[in-house]
Write a protein that binds this DNA or RNA. Sequence first.
RNA 1: GCGGACGUAGCUCAGCUGGUAGAGCGCCAGGUUGUGGUCCUGGAUGUCGUGGGUUCGAGCCCCAUCGUUCGCCCCA
Length: 411
Amino acid sequence: MTKPQPVRGTQDIIGEDARRHHHVIETARRVAGLYGAAEWATPVFELTSVFARNLGETSDVVTKEMYTFEDRSGESVTLRPEGTAGVCRALVSNGLTQTLPQKIFYQGPMFRYERPQKGRYRQFHQIGLEIIGAAEPLADAEAIACGQQILDELGVGASITLHINTLGDRDSRDAYRTALVDYLSRYESELSAESKVRLVKNPLRILDTKDANDIRLLADAPRIHDHLNPASAAFYDGLKAALSAFGIAFVENPRIVRGFDYYNHTAFEFVSTALGAQGTVLGGGRYDQLVEQMGGPPTPGVGWAAGIERLAMLLAATPATPRPVAVIPMGEAEQIAAIEILATLRRAGIAAEVAYRGNMKKRLERANRINARAAVLIGPDELARGAVTLKTLDDGAQRELPRAELLAALG
RNA sequence: GCGGACGUAGCUCAGCUGGUAGAGCGCCAGGUUGUGGUCCUGGAUGUCGUGGGUUCGAGCCCCAUCGUUCGCCCCA
């Protein structure tokens, strides 16, 4: 038997996975609301230029990793690889650059055309937060605090450490890049193959190398903090002060970098100590050039995103679902009474189920399987007396009571 | 995109140097025609990922393909 398969790198989220997934989203949505964020839903695909223009046409990201195709009119469209670009596009499209700041929460599927691995799918899901229109480090601190609170409320915060860094403003960053290239060029022959390529293409990312010898060479490399101009240094100090005031613990990690030019100042990652070397569960930073690159007015922004699948994996336990009440008519004659009781319970906010068929034994088995807390039994005797038998399934105790008292008994 | 490993029942897996499939769990039925979770008895389920090849004979060997997984590249 050949069963139909989902497209490579996609997965069905069902059962326990679905409950964990929803729990992550609901927790994040609720906490983001506490920070004043409104939830946006932007399209899952955009014109390719929305993503490509900002990333550089030649990077691997564009040529290799985007889910891009032509629609029937020959337009090149791309399934969104991340959420920030679409949110910034929407901000500009809707003229919201006149109404700043905006705090935006989003959640949904993202797509990258990569080789699938465990926890890395071609369709995956993210939650994200953006604060657009605030140039102050307080916005960065709020975004980070929101991320921290979500992780805490998910119960995964304990095994996670916040790493922060600054890239400085454009001048600071350019000065640092020059200094870093100067230094590393002297050791070019000793660098790993990948780092040699990065030295030309994207030198800051060498700081993120895994090669032991590269790491040794980097020990004496110039540091970003020595190249920050006064304004950038003040911004970074402001961030750290605000984080401390929010009660957020962090470590400074100069190896956290971002590859694209629209990033500046703050870069941060929440790293799980439980998941090995690649344990980033939530990451983000400041992107003061992005909205302008998108065709809007110069508008600062800061935000983060986190993979829902990875967070769901970290949850200690699957969130419990409410236990329903099983309504069990003995036969056809009691069916109508059962339906009436179902309606009463559900309108009162009590989860209630009835099995579609089967004798009493079968229906009790089913009640057990759906983890019902109680069964409401109705046979000819109860029907004649206008009563029901209420059975508590955990201890098996049961008693007969008038139908009118059922709601109160289940309250 | 590159390299390694793997693909047997719904799930987890066993299957000797090739002789045409098994366990546990789950599922269904009965023991109990007004009572579940425990127990006992019985039952169903697989073109052994797919296609081709070698062979008298392939779950097992060979090739291809699809998928999964580990690592690399990348990680917006």
